[in-house]
Nucleic acid binder design. Structure first.
Length: 261
DNA sequence: ATGGTAGTTTCACTA
């Protein structure tokens, strides 16, 4: 079973690219973030025509928005809100007995100081609340996958320059610590780093602002797929589709795939 | 230290 996560940055603008993702990766389950559309306006046909007939949506107008699309039936669809906001940042569904959590963590703005920047405070609070909720939720010990745009690059090799990024939102020590607590909440295993050693650089996002994203290669690994420990022995591979950043009208994030046998 | 691009609720906000 192949799961793919992709921050699509507007599903209406990039609906044609869903076919390319399907052709390149053939996902069984496709999870999207930043769909930026209310549910009644979601382009469902773009997914159903590719065989994804089971679709769960948690959308909102203009911002955020998550989706789980599947070739296999979805059960127990639910969503959560965090930090008392209505933001559409979480959606869960059970597929083939595996509980899937699609998550879009707040980006956190530019200034890495929670006293100066309410967006950064929100990001830290969101990570805290997600961790404490998941600690209780994980006691059921069911097989789970957590995937999405977590907006934190935890390892030194998850950014183009560890030293220059230490003070930049997405790689500050406080964010890495809080992402670590979320990862500890269900003893989550980083499924992509199970196949790409931590010594190797690996990115899933490149800024739109670079003159030449490929040549400068100033990327960050913001998109993650985690599995609970009982699924770890069943992992058979992972792919980060760097090519997708070079497509016409690309998202700034690329799809990340994980295979579970 | 600055400014660079993209998307949407577009002369402002988020990323």
């Amino acid at each position: 079973m192949r799961l793919v996560t992709w921050n699509i940055n507007s599903v209406r603008l990039r609906a044609p690219l869903l076919e390319r993702v399907a052709q390149w990766l053939h996902p069984d389950i496709l999870c999207l973030q930043e769909t930026k559309v209310a549910d009644p306006l979601f382009p469902r046909e773009a997914l159903t025509s590719l065989g994804y007939k089971h679709i769960a949506l948690a959308g909102q107008k203009a911002y955020n928005g998550v989706c789980i699309a599947s070739k296999l039936p979805l059960a127990a669809v639910a969503r959560r809100s965090f930090c008392g906001k209505d933001d559409a940042r979480h959606l869960q569904a059970t597929v083939a007995g595996i509980e899937i959590h699609c998550l879009y963590v707040p980006a956190g703005g530019d200034v890495p100081d929670p006293d100066e920047n309410p967006k950064f405070a929100h990001k830290l609070a969101f990570l805290d609340e997600a961790a404490s909720w998941m600690r209780g939720h994980a006691r059921g010990r069911r097989p789970m996958v957590l995937l999405g745009d977590l907006n934190v690059a935890p390892l030194p090799t998850d950014v183009w320059s560890h030293k220059q990024m230490l003070g930049v939102v997405s790689h500050t020590p406080i964010e890495v610590e809080k992402l670590g607590r979320l990862q500890a909440s269900a003893r989550w295993v980083d499924a992509v780093r199970a196949f790409v050693p931590p010594e190797e650089t690996l990115y899933s996002w490149w800024s739109y602002r670079a003159n030449d994203w490929d040549a400068s290669d100033r990327g960050r690994r913001l998109d993650h797929v985690w599995v609970t420990p009982q699924l770890a022995p069943s992992l058979t591979g992972a792919i980060v589709l760097r090519e997708a950043r070079g497509w016409d009208q690309p998202s700034d994030h690329v799809p990340v795939a994980v295979d579970i046998e």
